[in-house]
């Protein structure tokens, strides 16, 4: 009797969250899978007609779509270039921050800034910084005798605009990683360092033999979650290049499209069947992130240390 009563009470406390999650989280999970099996689904019609069922038809269409290839290529470049660089740089910054006492708080605040800002607003600032004639980057390159590079303006190539996007992505990714690494470093037991001091171990060795091994579970965790996060890149592209997802000029529209950008382009498309293409692409993205999640679980089970 008593148990049943407390059961009921618990469900009452859960009810508001559960109701909203059922409608906007749990149901979509199944429905989005279901959508991938429909052909010519038209949700605008009141009776929601579709032509036929298909098992892999939508997936086939996505995987053979040139635009998806472009999206996959761009996303993979963003993931595998920006994440390793930002992990290494933020680790170095965190170690440096941990080694100082004066102004530590001030630096910490500065490094945190990118986290609290608006991706679109800062993307616009970056677009201007990379402007060919009036931006800072080309001025800087000029000091080294380089000719102005067209990054985001008329005449930009895929490579140059990707470089600008990567710089912005790395810049935006530092804050979170620095904070987490710093918290991790501050949790390392001081006695390891004291022991190293007694033995007069050189600093570089302390970093390689104590700090990094002890921090390795966190490094692995951050790296993998950052891979997952970077696979969802989209807002950075919108911020820098706008809805055309490409710099103006030579390049075709959508040259810098990402997987998420691809999904949205099909959500916006109201033609029958388009939503199923979007769903299929979302499932592909899900599978990719699932693979990384399993790697993450496997790595954390192995407890990387040395």
């Amino acid at each position: 009797m008593l148990e049943r009563e407390s059961n009921l009470k618990a469900w009452l406390y859960l009810a508001p969250a559960l109701l909203l999650l059922s409608v906007f989280t749990f149901y979509p999970l199944f429905n989005s899978f279901y959508l991938t099996f429909l052909v010519g689904y038209n949700y605008l019609k009141p009776d929601k007609i579709f032509e036929a069922y298909t098992l892999v038809g939508n997936f086939k269409e996505v995987l053979s779509d040139k635009l998806f290839h472009q999206a996959l290529k761009n996303t993979v470049v963003i993931v595998f270039v920006s994440v390793p660089i930002s992990v290494i740089v933020s680790l170095l910054i965190a170690v440096a921050l941990n080694g100082i006492k004066k102004l530590q708080g001030t630096f910490q605040t500065i490094f945190f800034l990118p986290y609290v800002t608006n991706a679109i607003a800062v993307g616009m600032a970056f677009a201007f910084i990379f402007n060919t004639n009036y931006g800072l980057v080309n001025q800087f390159l000029g000091w080294f005798g380089m000719d102005p590079v067209k990054f985001v303006t008329l005449g930009a190539t895929w490579g140059t605009s990707m470089i600008a996007l990567l710089v912005y992505t790395i810049w935006g990714g530092l804050a979170f990683k620095i904070m987490v690494f710093l918290a991790g470093l501050q949790n390392i037991d001081k006695q390891y360092y004291d022991a190293a001091k007694v033995d007069a171990t050189p600093r570089s060795r302390v970093l390689r033999r104590i700090t990094i091994p002890l921090l390795s579970p966190m490094i692995a965790y951050i790296t993998i979650t950052s891979f997952i996060g970077a696979f969802k890149a989209y807002r950075t592209v919108i911020g820098m290049f706008g809805a055309s997802l490409a710099p103006p000029g030579l390049l075709p529209k959508d040259s810098l499209i990402t997987i998420v950008g691809y999904i949205y382009s099909y959500i916006y498309d109201t033609a029958p069947g388009a939503i199923s293409i979007a769903a299929a692409a979302a499932v592909i993205l899900f599978v990719i992130t699932l693979v990384f999640t399993f790697i993450q679980m496997w790595v954390s089970k192995k407890r990387v240390h040395f």
């Binding site: 999650l21 409608v23 906007f24 989280t25 749990f26 149901y27 979509p28 999970l29 429905n31 989005s32 959508l35 949700y43 605008l44 997952i228 696979f231 969802k232 998420v260 999904i263 949205y264 959500i267 939503i275 979007a278 769903a279 979302a282 499932v283 993205l285 899900f286 992130t289 699932l290 999640t293």
Partner: peptide
């Protein structure tokens, strides 16, 4: 609940768009 955190948000957005429609 926790499992839903690793699912890309677009999976939800697609159906939620249809739901509000």
């Amino acid at each position: 609940f926790l499992m839903t955190m690793m699912i890309p948000g677009e999976m939800f957005v697609i159906t939620n768009y249809l739901t509000v429609s």
